[in-house]
Amino acid sequence: MPSNSRRQTVIGHAILAVAALVALYPFLSVLLLAFGEPGTRTSGFSIPTSISFDNFTEAWRRGLFSDALTSSLIVAAAVVIGTIVLAVLASYALAFFPFPLKGPMLGLLLIGLVMPYEATVIPLYYQLKDWGLVNTYWALILPQIGLSLPFAVFWMRTFFVSTPPALREAAAVDGASRLRTLRSVLLPMATPAIGTLATLLFLFAWNEFLLALVLVPDNRSVQTAPLALSFFAGNRRNSDPGVTAAAAVLVALPVLISYIALQRRMISGMLAGAVKE
């Protein structure tokens, strides 16, 4: 019996190690390619002998990636801030205040949580075009705040419900208003939950592709990083794979850095968010 379970331990960990290698390999091979000499096509099985940044300077020069990274940062930051402010207010009411039609409201939010973006993107385009906002930052910020709300509201509501009622009662006894209770009692406690939520919303907004493709297709100065990468990689003139790989690394880098710093929080957040669905 013990030898059997020992064998299982070894095989199990071996499978995990292979799985981890496979998960790393595609991005590693892109890294190798990007740091190779321009024009060379590192197969990915050999260790490179020299490191070159030429692919990066070339991608940076041709792809307007400084604009794209700035755009992504502006859009993601605005979406995170806007969504969190609206979601905190709404989920506070949904968690604690009695009012009619609460059930149907949560049901409507649930639809938005599950629904694919394809369901809204066509009218969104014509609506924003009417307002003259297509090809501006607003075309990405405003809809993404709306579309992020279900996730953020359910997230914050779950947190608020889990806080001890005694705290709110004590605040009420002290004569604190609803807004005061939220600001001085609940929000300080909510900092970790809001932090994780902000990280996830930032990740989703940074990686969003379909909305950017549809809503800012013709203005290069507001294109987000994934959209710029998609156009860059799809352009036949940029057929040097090393330069395309460098562009992909540039787009992934901010997310990778935050992942290395915050991975525990991001993973448990994504799993917990999924569980709540």
Binding site: A19, A20, A23, L24, P26, F27, S29, V30, L33, R41, S43, G44, F45, L203, W206, N207, F209, A225, P226, L227, L229, S230, A233, P241, T244, A245, A247, A248, V251, A252, V255, L256, Y259, Q263, R264, M266, I267, M270
Partner: peptide
């Protein structure tokens, strides 16, 4: 942390990586 990496990369980055892997001169 490693197994979760594909989940956090933008799909466009994933696509570019795999286009290289499947490339005629790719790995």
């Amino acid at each position: 942390a490693v197994l979760f990496l594909p989940q956090i990369l933008a799909t466009v980055v994933v696509a570019v990586s795999w286009r290289w892997i499947y490339d005629i001169d790719g790995p």
